[in-house]
Simulated assay, not measured.
Amino acid sequence: MDIKLKDFEGPLDLLLHLVSKYQMDIYEVPITEVIEQYLTYVATLQAMRLEVAGEYMLMASQLMLIKSRRLLPKVAEEMDQEEDPEQILLDQLEEYRKFKILSEKLGEQHNERANYFSKPKLELVYDDVTLVQDKSAIDLFLAFSKVMAEKQAEFRQSHTTIARDEYKIEDLMDFVRSRFKQTKRLTLGSIFKESRDLNELITIFLATLELVKVHEMSMEQEENFGEIYLVRRENESLS
């Protein structure tokens, strides 16, 4: 079973998604926190052996430059003519936001206009199982990125073990289901608590995505960047 995460339209689209979670003006967001979330997201993609486009890596290097400049002590009198990469990035984000809003409005007008024309039916055939990009899926993935970073630090501090490479999504879907025998609601982090190595951690996450995709589980998030809860749907019975 192949599960693919649909890419954002580009690194600025990912950054705009992270920034918009703060529900404040782009120039007021805590840029260091946004940078950390972006870098963790990209690192998680790499750890999961998912292809990361070069433009995302280029943006990651630019963000690391901004982060390093934030950590360095401020020079008393900086040269006025020196370009500020942070300000340039924020200007790009604001411009991208305006164009995205405009494109969405044009898309709505296009869809409304399309209602006046009849179109032949199209048969859609998908060779791969694809998890479409939506708010819930992305929030779940970003929350997993945080969990994964914490578990990687834990693995480094623990005794060295030989990692198995034979975990199956179907088996770990049953494992996730078993966690809901006594409850209908669990935090995302608790599901990964007993993971013994990185491969198992990633496969449990893919199993969780599949359960959400087939509507066996739903997710709840009470606040932006808050704890993610997985909830077993009422009409789903666990074997």
Rank of each mutant, 00 (worst) to 15 (best):
120 P>C: 07
228 I>K: 01
212 V>F: 06
29 V>C: 06
217 M>K: 01
16 L>R: 07
27 Y>S: 05
85 P>A: 04
64 M>W: 00
23 Q>S: 08
50 L>A: 12
102 L>V: 01
238 L>V: 15
13 D>N: 12
29 V>S: 08
184 K>L: 06
121 K>L: 05
7 D>W: 03
206 L>S: 07
95 E>H: 05
7 D>Q: 12
152 Q>P: 04
8 F>S: 07
40 T>K: 09
211 L>V: 02
101 I>L: 13
217 M>W: 07
142 L>I: 03
148 M>I: 02
126 Y>A: 12
207 A>D: 10
43 A>K: 14
86 E>W: 04
5 L>T: 09
95 E>K: 13
59 M>Y: 06
199 N>V: 01
160 T>E: 12
112 E>P: 09
18 L>C: 06
9 E>T: 09
122 L>E: 13
164 R>Q: 06
123 E>R: 00
151 K>H: 11
232 R>E: 00
210 E>Q: 12
171 D>L: 11
155 F>W: 14
15 L>K: 02
78 E>W: 01
160 T>H: 09
192 F>R: 01
106 L>V: 14
192 F>L: 02
161 T>M: 05
134 D>Y: 07
95 E>I: 04
44 T>N: 09
34 V>R: 01
71 L>T: 08
233 R>P: 02
153 A>N: 13
142 L>M: 12
26 I>H: 06
186 L>F: 03
139 D>T: 05
230 L>M: 08
71 L>R: 05
16 L>Y: 09
139 D>N: 06
204 I>E: 08
136 S>C: 02
89 L>Y: 10
79 M>C: 05
220 E>K: 09
219 M>D: 00
8 F>Y: 00
195 S>D: 08
49 R>N: 15
91 D>Q: 10
151 K>L: 13
194 E>S: 13
42 V>P: 03
228 I>W: 04
102 L>D: 08
53 A>H: 14
203 T>Y: 09
94 E>R: 04
235 N>D: 14
36 E>M: 09
89 L>C: 03
126 Y>N: 08
170 E>A: 14
137 A>R: 04
20 S>L: 05
112 E>R: 15
146 K>V: 05
178 S>V: 09
70 R>G: 11
200 E>W: 07
189 G>Y: 01
104 E>T: 07
200 E>Q: 15
200 E>P: 02
104 E>P: 09
63 L>M: 11
14 L>W: 01
39 L>Q: 10
155 F>L: 14
122 L>T: 11
71 L>Y: 11
1 M>N: 01
145 S>P: 04
234 E>S: 14
170 E>I: 14
117 F>M: 13
172 L>M: 09
221 Q>C: 00
221 Q>F: 03
148 M>N: 12
142 L>V: 01
192 F>H: 00
6 K>P: 01
9 E>V: 05
158 S>N: 07
132 V>H: 04
227 E>W: 05
209 L>A: 12
15 L>H: 06
228 I>H: 06
239 S>E: 13
17 H>F: 15
216 E>V: 10
92 Q>I: 02
144 F>S: 03
195 S>G: 12
235 N>S: 14
151 K>V: 10
232 R>G: 00
173 M>A: 13
180 F>W: 03
120 P>E: 07
159 H>G: 07
39 L>I: 13
19 V>W: 00
77 E>A: 12
37 Q>G: 00
2 D>L: 03
226 G>P: 06
